[in-house]
Design a binder for these strands. Sequence first.
DNA 1: CTTGACCTTGGAGCGTAGTCCACTGTTTAG
DNA 2: CTAAACAGTGGACTACGCTCCAAGGTCAAG
Lengths: 119, 119
Amino acid sequence: MRIGELAARTGVSRDTLRFYERVGLVEGRRLANGYRDFDAETVEWLAYVRTARALGFSLAEIARHGEELRDAPDQADALSALFEEKIRIVDARMAELAALRGELAARAGTGCPLRAAGA
Amino acid sequence: MRIGELAARTGVSRDTLRFYERVGLVEGRRLANGYRDFDAETVEWLAYVRTARALGFSLAEIARHGEELRDAPDQADALSALFEEKIRIVDARMAELAALRGELAARAGTGCPLRAAGA
DNA sequence: CTTGACCTTGGAGCGTAGTCCACTGTTTAG
DNA sequence: CTAAACAGTGGACTACGCTCCAAGGTCAAG
């Protein structure tokens, strides 16, 4: 599939897709005329990329994980390990949020000042 | 307190504090000699800013919330409302993370490919 | 054969969040 | 009095993640 179709299917702009290629986040073969040619799995990969991005993972991290996966001797094992690592990160982030939530809930209603200086 | 002491107490660099002042995130009076003079509550405010930042809130958002608070007719009410809003955002973010966690957990071990193209 | 949709490249520009630097002024300690 | 430690300013610079633009190549339809 060419870049326009991939863009349409994923909601990621052509410019962004070219940018993602530059930073190693997606890969495309080239057709004889020089056009990029992506395969269908890239759609799923980009859905994953978008989710990971939304949750605060950097493009570099995501790309690195993709590469680790590629280089792994056992794909299934590597995938499981990657997911388990991400789950740990997600758990840690959820714990942080829970802590902030607790802090906010404790302060709500007390009138405890967070900010002294009026703008 | 002058900028150096505030930096030492909060772990936020002087340059960053000056930058925060420029974007309206902190406020300082000035001493006769032109030096910034912060009050003690700014330490707590910055701790809060750092937590909020770590959780993905932008400086603009944080500054805006600070201003809303300042402009509110009833400080305690405004504070409660702000915290409740943040708690809702935090809950939403936790739900997103829980969804990703579920997705990851479901895929871990299945060998379902996320990425087709080898780098 | 032209028009238009699609593709290519390179490079500029933007918003966010700092970080660093040079140069200058102020305060404090020996 | 001088040196060090602190403060001020303005401006350049960085990294990230896009986003836009100009100039041009490719291809299918009319």
